[in-house]
Structure formats: C-alpha cells, structure tokens
Design a protein around this nucleic acid. Sequence first.
RNA 1: GGGCCUGUAACUCAAUCGGUAGAGUAUCGGCCUUUUAAGCCGAGAGUUGUGGGUUCGAGUCCCACCGGGCCCA
Length: 517
Amino acid sequence: MPDPETDPISVRLSKLVELERIGIDPYPSSWGVTDLAADLLEAFQDDGPDIECRIAGRVVAIRRHGKTTFSHLADRSGRIQAYLRQDELGDSYDLVDHLDIGDFVGVAGHLFRTRTGEITVRVGEAALLAKALRPLPFGKLVESEDGDRTYHRVVDREFRYRQRYADLAVRPEARRVFERRSRIIRCLRNELERRGFLEVETPVLQPVYGGATARPFVTHHQTLGIPLYLRIADELYLKRCVVGGLERVYEVAKDFRNEGIDRFHSPEFTMLEFYQAYADYEDFMALAEELLVGLVGELTGGTEITYQGRTVDATPPWPRIGFLDALAERGVAIDDLSRSALAAEAKRHEVEISEQEREGKILEALFDHLVEPTLEGPVFVIDHPRATSPLAKAHSRDSRLVERFEAYLFGREWANAFSELNDPRDQRRRFEDQADLAATGDLEAPNVVDEDFLRALEYGMPPTAGMGIGIDRLVMFLTDQPSIRDVILFPALRPEDGRVTEGEDTDQPIVEDGVDL
RNA sequence: GGGCCUGUAACUCAAUCGGUAGAGUAUCGGCCUUUUAAGCCGAGAGUUGUGGGUUCGAGUCCCACCGGGCCCA
C-alpha cells in the first residue's frame, strides 16, 4: 500500500483538494492565451521595447528558491522560462506550493533576460488551468562518456502504445513522427488535388467486401437485419465513382483486415487509393515516381531515404522487373503455371503451401519468399500473372499476365496499381473463380459475387488506372520508425486487464451484435 | 501456430553461484529572492506480472497462465 504522504498521486490529489478549499478552481474554463513561447523568444530584443505577454502551457520544470521560483512552461511551439516572485505576486505566489510538473498553468507578465542570459517571463499574474493528478513518465538521468546528460524517456514499447498520451507528452520525437505523418498525407492530398482528383468518401460498412483478398471484420446491422463487413479496401466503390463520371477520385481510407499483427501489419490501417480515367498502369508508374520523389524532396530537400540504417535514392526512373522474370531469376521454372507445376516449384524451393491454395496464392508465396526480401528498391515489379490479380486488366501483349505493378522499398510493398479491369464479362468470370475459392474454404476470398459492382461495369467504365498506397508503411519509411505501431497513434493491443472475451475464435467469421446507440 | 527474449518503486535500471531487494530521477519535510531538468540536509516508497512447485532459503531454478518485443510460419 503506497504511503499517502508520499505517493505522487495521493499527494497531488490532496493539493487539489486544498486548492478547492481555499477557493481556487483547479479546472477553470479558459485563460485567453495571446502568445506562443517560440514567438516570444523570437520577438525579444535586449534594447527593444517592453513585451507584455500571456501564455499557457504544461509545467515541465520547477526550481523553487523559497520566495522565488523558476519554472519552464511548454506549449505547442516550444518552452519558455517563467520567473515568479513572492514580493510581486503576493498571495497568488502560494499557488507554487500546490504546483507539480505536468500541471497546466497560465502566466502573464513581461519579458526580460535573466542574469544567466535566458529570455524569461517575469510573471505578474499566474493561474492554475488544470491540475495533473498523475506524474508524467520522465526518465532516468544518464551521463554519456563525453559528459552529455540526457534523460531517458519512456522506452518501454508497451507503455508507449498503451499510453500514447503520456508518450506524446514526454517524447518530442514521438510528436514529430505524427506531425510528419500529417504532413505526408497533406502533401499527397495537395498533389492529387493539383492534378484534378476529387476527394470522396465511400462506405466503411459494406454488404459485400472486395477490392483485396483478406479476412474481414464482420458486424451486424440491427434494423436492416443484415451482416455488414468493415471494408478491406475501397477499390470497388471508387471505380463505381469513375463509372459515374467522377473521372479522377481519391480517398484516404481506413481499411480493416482481420489478420495477424506484426511490425508491418495492423488490423486497421490507412490506405490512399486513387483512380484516373483514360490512364493506364504505365502512366501510374510515372505518377508513383513523382509522388514519392516529391514527398522525399518536401521532407528532406533531397532524394535519399534512410530507413533503419539503409539508404536508397528515390530518383526516377526506377528499374522495372517482370513478376515472372523475377521468379525465374531466383531459379523458379515459369513455363508452366498450372497448379501442379507451381506446387512442385514451391516444394523444390522449400516454400510451404497448403493443399487448397491455388495458382495465384502459390505464385505470391514463391514471390514473397524468394524475391521480395531482395527488393531494396525503389523498384517496380510489373506484369503479374492473371491468377494473382482478379481486378486487373489483361495484359495487352500477353494474355497470361495483367497490367499491374507493385512498388517496393526496403523489401516491402508500399504501392500497388493496375490498369483496371473494365470488361464486365471478364470481371464476372474472375469473381466467380473467387467465389469458388471461398466455397472451398478460402477465408480471404470474397463470399459472394458483387453483382452491384458488375452492374456498374455494365454501364461502362472508361479505361482507368488505379493505385493504392499503404500510408502507414510509407510513413514508417519516411520517419525511420521500425514498427507500424510507431506511426499509428493508438495501435491495437490486447486488453490491458488480460480479459479475453470468451467465445469460440473459430475460423468462421463471428457475427456479433452491434450496440444500438 | 513455432522459436528466442522480456516483465523488479511513479520512470529508467541494478541485485555475483539461489543467501537481508538497491541507485538516479520523481515524491514528502527543512533551508534558500536570478535558477538552468539548481544546491544542501533529512525521510518515505516494493505482494519482484499472476498462480503453483523445488529448496533451510527464490527476483534468481522448474511448470502453467497473463502482458509485451523480436524472428520464423
């Protein structure tokens, strides 16, 4: 049992109660900030005019010297020192007795430079804006060999992910990752807008899931009495937009896939998809190059990307290698793409496949094992076998292939694009093949043929190119973060209390009752 | 699903071969009217993730479970 006299939370709580007792609201409504720390530091001149200011922020340091106190306040722009004197503040100096690191305070006064040279607010008015009951996890002081003293911030990954609020409060580098994430998405939006793309919003809850091969999350709509699926992709809806004449559309979409979690996979993730009528995958390879090199230039001013100690140059044009050629280079026989031949190749290369996996899956398994890890990039893998790509248009020169590319960086796919299949007859055949897979127990295959999408295609879709960019991975590369959880603010984790809902976690989708709000 | 690693104070970490669980920061009390994540004096703080087992004795060894990480499938 922690001692209530010294337990940090108990102590802060009793300070809070004491404040209320003497008539100070520990959670007032507003303060009326007029200045930012960084602006004040910028504006101050030693022989310049007096600067009055009014700021607010979190207390990140307090140094008490009896009748005088120094403190640092941090706001979104940075931090600035405040200097409080009992002889100038009178009774309100008592606030200092009830102040802790982490509290939010407002301070008004004028700027001066201290004896030691730091630009500081000499405080004429101070107010508690919000009491923090829980101490922030500032870490241990460590001294390096050259005498530098730094504080360890929270290094425990679980702590960072579970309590991102505290992680952000304590690690500026965490804040920078998410600022940069925002900037990356904004840059992509700007570039697409500049090219005449229209941002649209399409259903997250879909009656038929499609646009990718993945296990979905299932939910249930009470009033309609039907199952609904959280989208695994928005592809088929964006193409419906193109059918309707929205010739250039994009969506920054949260997609959901009910699959494993690892360093590169999260059950919910962000995908940017965009579609352009009258373009093909060749056009989009050029676009992929421009988008990435533009982003890198915007963020770094250069063309190089360094990820976890590895550096690549994004300058176009990037090499292109045929999917099957890449396999052939690794010694895979590609003349015969029948299931039996492919299964034999998988066995020969010690790539495990299950009994029910068909041609497309086997090819992907071979590729993932033999080729993908070698693709340091940037590089395009192009012209995939038909069986791997049920939504891509048949290749104009080789009917075994489709017009598709995947862009790779550091051994990972970050973009996937193709000339979209717009022949409704061919699309129907491919859907029916998928439905056959589902019938044989492939949980990733769509459950039914999306008749509504076929109806849309029957109205006619112009030749169209489409691309999907995995935003989280791209942000990982451009912020040099090792795990997808480092670029998602609140990543999925097991429940902290260890309780797992009892129920059969079978391989069949579980239909759960939604809560009717 | 498999392998390896991991869980000790609020935070970061120690604890020799199985032998009294410690340190810095933070917290509390005291002094201090220009400090630099101040200084000095003093104090409190732990069911070592949970539950079993081995042992005279377990943070340490064994088993199960819970959480997390990395690698593989």
